[in-house]
Design a protein around this nucleic acid. Structure first.
Length: 502
RNA sequence: GCGCCGUUAGCUCAAUUGGCAGAGCAGCUGGCUCUUAACCAGCGGGUUCGGGGUUCGAGUCCCUGACGGCGCACCA
């Protein structure tokens, strides 16, 4: 084998051909004294502004308007003496640029052809015209690089693989309009939620995400460490206990929109970090919170779609308008199994029912837990229209106030839409003595090894002892609200979902 | 955590029983003054996810690891 006279292969030599070519073009520009990354370009109009100023021009028209525009090159069509490029700016607006030999001269035209690649940001100055085909364009009298891309854009005409979309969301945003739309939809929804709550005299607060004790939900937390305090801290699984402290303190309508962290399974509807709205209202009950929740969701739909009719990615339309169905847990199960299931149904009958429907049960389960399991396995996925499922057995809502007329039930509901849980609410437990008993029971579970059980938060109990007014509380997943509105998976609604290291 | 499927050019994907790794777009060279995923002619581009094995010969078969998808379990 001959000895190579080439320099030893370095990182440059190992780059794909297309990246070497683009880096060479960048180097060429520098060698010619041209900056491939100028600090500014003399832009006078956005592409959108140019389009807005000339909405209806016929083919082959000159306007006399001189503009300086810039954008990312999305398509290139070079002929011998006339070049076309489609420029695009951040909001997706596109405008054609044209460069002709007659106007820019041979040297500048050649420089365009040899240095501009798909994906580059370019600046073009010239007259606003329409082409013979009627395409609104800027006919260049000069052009410059605004920012050279050294990595090739993926083919615009193929769908990116789901993994690339998630891992390289910036590329997804460049090539896929729906990705940009999701970002806007999410921002619109969050703005709408805040607006609806502010209209109802709610106060927004921010409570700790790093907590000494985790509570407010049953879930496995992430653990981290504070060096200054030499103590372990938990990333919060819910803001609930701090928001309730706010209610004790007199912030009688309070909400927070922020991230929770749960160290649990990851799938198409679960992310380890997820955005949540929690709202608490003094002198409200779970029924009031149902009305609030419906209004929040419907206002969000109107903010995004201009109507309560939501359009899913598959093209289907669903109307979330009007009143929503409310059904008790037991009635929901009764309907689907075709026989009456009530609080008085003997546990043996429930077990038989589970067996007939191939629902596996744990031996330790009480009647309420079996009914809930029947609901989750047989009913939940069938509830497509928004449905409040209410009045859960106390066994499965250990921290909730008892129902005012049936002590075996808790005043709580889950809102199910398109087969998954979107929100949950309670008439909150405010008796500090009972609260202490229940948290103590949880702590015994924790001591016995239940990683999801709550700890006894003495400061929270102290707050409760000062007296918390009757209060309704509600929690809603923001990501899931976006899923409800768009029909997409949770990883599509989160800009940068957690992914394993490459 | 368990099971099944997958990973091939910059991107999206092919490759028959184990027998010369291909296509479209993108790139490079040349041509073209009205293109719209332009067109015409030509050319280059690969650690077939990593490691090990079987075989005359492995993208293909076996073992192992990484990553991903789906299902189950857990959960909102």
């Amino acid at each position: 084998m001959a000895v190579s006279t080439e320099p030893p292969p370095g990182p440059e030599a190992e780059l794909p051909e297309q990246m070497r070519v683009r880096r060479a073009k960048r180097a060429e520009m520098l060698a010619e004294g041209r900056d491939p990354y100028p600090v500014a370009v003399p832009r006078t109009h956005t592409l959108r502004e140019v389009r807005a100023a000339h909405p209806e021009l016929g083919p082959d028209t000159s306007t006399g308007d001189l503009v300086g525009v810039s954008g990312r090159v999305m398509f290139l069509r070079n002929t011998g003496k006339l070049c076309f490029a489609t420029l695009r700016e951040g909001d997706g607006t596109e405008l054609q640029a044209m460069l002709s030999l007659a106007l820019v001269g041979a040297e500048e035209l050649a420089r365009w052809k040899s240095t501009v690649d798909l994906g580059d940001h370019v600046f073009v100055h010239g007259e606003v015209i329409t082409s013979r085909r009627g395409e609104l364009s800027v006919m260049a009298d000069s052009w410059d690089m605004a920012a050279k891309a050294v990595r090739p854009l993926p083919t615009v005409h193929n769908e990116l693989s789901e993994e690339t979309r998630v891992r390289q969301r910036y590329v997804d945003l460049i090539v896929r309009p729906q990705a940009r739309e999701m970002v806007q939809a999410r921002a619109t929804v969050v703005r709408s939620l805040r607006s609806t709550l502010h209209d109802r005299s709610y106060t927004e607060v921010e409570t700790p995400m790093l907590q000494l004790q985790h509570g407010g939900a049953t879930a496995r937390p992430f653990v981290t460490h504070a060096n200054a305090l030499d103590t372990d801290l938990y990333l919060r699984i819910a803001p609930e206990l701090f928001l309730k402290r706010c209610v004790v303190g007199g912030i009688e309508r309070v909400f927070e929109i922020n991230r929770n962290f749960r160290n649990e399974g990851i799938d198409s509807s679960h992310s380890p970090e997820f955005a949540m709205l929690e709202a608490y209202q003094a002198y409200a009950t779970y029924a009031d919170m149902a009305t609030l929740t419906r209004e929040l969701v419907q206002a969000s739909a109107r903010a995004v779609f201009g109507s309560t009719v939501v359009r899913h990615a598959d093209g289907s339309e669903h109307d979330l308008g009007g009143e929503w169905r409310t059904v008790t847990l037991h009635d929901a199960v009764s309907e689907v199994v075709g026989q009456d299931v009530t609080l008085d149904t003997p546990i043996e009958d429930l077990r038989k029912l589970a067996a007939t429907h191939d629902v596996e049960l744990k031996d330790s389960w009480a009647a309420g837990e079996i009914v809930l399991e029947l609901f989750e396995k047989l009913v939940e996925h069938t509830l497509l229209a928004p449905t409040f499922v209410k009045d859960y057995p106390v066994e499965v809502r250990p921290l909730t106030r008892r129902h005012r007329s049936e002590p075996r039930l808790a005043e709580s509901w889950d809102l199910t839409v398109f087969g998954f849980e979107l929100a949950t609410a309670y008439s909150e437990l405010v008796d500090p003595v009972e609260q202490r008993d229940r948290l103590y029971a949880q702590s015994l579970l924790a001591a016995a090894g239940d990683v999801e059980a709550m700890q006894v938060d003495e400061d929270f109990l102290r707050a409760m002892e000062y007296g918390m007014p009757p209060t309704g509380g509600m929690g809603m997943g923001i990501d899931r609200l976006l899923m409800t509105l768009t029909g997409l998976g949770i990883r599509e609604t989160i800009l940068y979902p957690l992914v394993r290291a490459e």
